[in-house]
């Protein structure tokens, strides 16, 4: 199976296992080495603190020329993540560079949890609430983290 896999993906996977990033786990599926189960710990001092968020990550055929496809599986209340778990992040779209890696992308996502950006929203209702009443929005995010990300 691994023989058909580009060297780049093999190296990246090896490195993810050998030098794991604190708070981030990414493990490829045995039957599809382009498909990763990912979990990210909510950053400290953020409404997501204490939560463990599950994501799925897929490396498309022309990776690394095109960005990986990533989606949250755990429900999350965040202005840049919508109900289906899709993420609005520049490096996953136009600003993708083939020199970026799974590791760097996951770090960017973790950073996004620590610094929500309601001015560039994907989930409009959440972003609006975030702007109008940030305290209440953060409380909701905490509440969602407790109910969905701590089981």
């Amino acid at each position: 199976m691994a023989s058909g896999l580009p060297k780049r993906i093999i190296k990246e996977t090896e490195r993810l296992v050998a030098e794991p990033v604190p708070g981030i786990h990414a493990v490829p599926h045995e039957d599809n080495l382009r498909y990763f189960d990912v979990s990210i710990h909510g950053p400290a001092q953020s409404p997501y603190e204490g939560g463990i968020f599950r994501l799925e990550l897929f490396l498309p055929e022309d990776y690394p020329m095109t960005p990986p496809k990533i989606r949250f599986l755990t429900k999350i209340y965040h202005p840049n993540i919508d109900r289906l778990g899709r993420i609005c992040l520049d490096v996953l779209k136009g600003n993708w560079s083939p020199a970026l890696q799974i590791r760097t992308i996951l770090l960017s996502i973790q950073a996004l949890l620590g610094a929500p950006n309601p001015d560039d929203p994907l989930a409009n209702d959440v972003a609006q609430r975030w702007k109008e009443d940030e305290k209440a929005a953060i409380a909701t995010a905490r509440e969602w983290t407790r109910t969905h990300a701590m089981t």
Partner: peptide
């Protein structure tokens, strides 16, 4: 184009 000793490409890891 140049050949550089000990080079590893950051994109393909070759």
């Amino acid at each position: 184009l140049e050949k550089i000793r000990g080079f590893m490409c950051d994109i393909c890891c070759d």
